[in-house]
Amino acid sequence: MSDIGIKLIYWDRVLEAGFWILLTLFFYYLALRIQRALGGTPLANPVLLASAPIIALLSAADIWVGDYQMGGQALIWLLGPATVGLAVPLYRNFARVRSALVPMAVSLVVGSAVAVLSAVLIGDAMGASLETVRSLAPKSVTTPIAMGIAEEIGGYASLTAAFVIITGIIGAVFGAMFFNFCRISDARARGFAMGIAAHGIGTARAFQEDEVSGTFSGVAMALNGIVTALILPLLWLAFAG
């Protein structure tokens, strides 16, 4: 196409993005192998196990993370269609979900309030800056919503994005152990709580365990995102504004 003087496709960029996607796939495959070798334990979280060596590699080679994200953006975009698939387990478990509307509503209200308030109060008590505390508030909500909320209440959207991911990994890694410790044994409760506290990364883990947990986790993630987006900025204005 270069003969008409306009480049329609930047092949070098496509190749570079493809390289980063393949690298990500390679480390994901390794992470899965490690997790399986360890009996599928949530402690060997694939997001953590795969992103750590990529971060190390980029730092060692002095490569800007933005270069990596040329490929990363494509995967982040694919998260949309993959998440839409939640409709299928939701359909299959529709009766289960419908019969649990009351526990879901109570858990949603209690869980989203605790997720926000505890992050704000603990961050403040530990002496974090005001901007950090504001960025902490929406940390349990899925990334795009959390970033929007952070901006509305005067936090840093980019900092919030990092908090959201770390929160998701904490929930995915320790959730099952913690639920066992607290004697929370109902698969629906475990999944729903995972989705409230640890959004999509928690949901990804819940689907590794069983479909009921995964379904309730996905529903909780969506509901918590909506509820927090609607209520948190109003509460913030009323009490801290």
Binding site: T24, A50, Q73, L78, A161, I169, I201
Partner: peptide, 10 residues
């Protein structure tokens, strides 16, 4: 689903 979250982790 974990695969698609790796770039966010990075």
């Amino acid at each position: 689903l974990n695969f698609f979250y790796i770039p966010a982790g990075v």
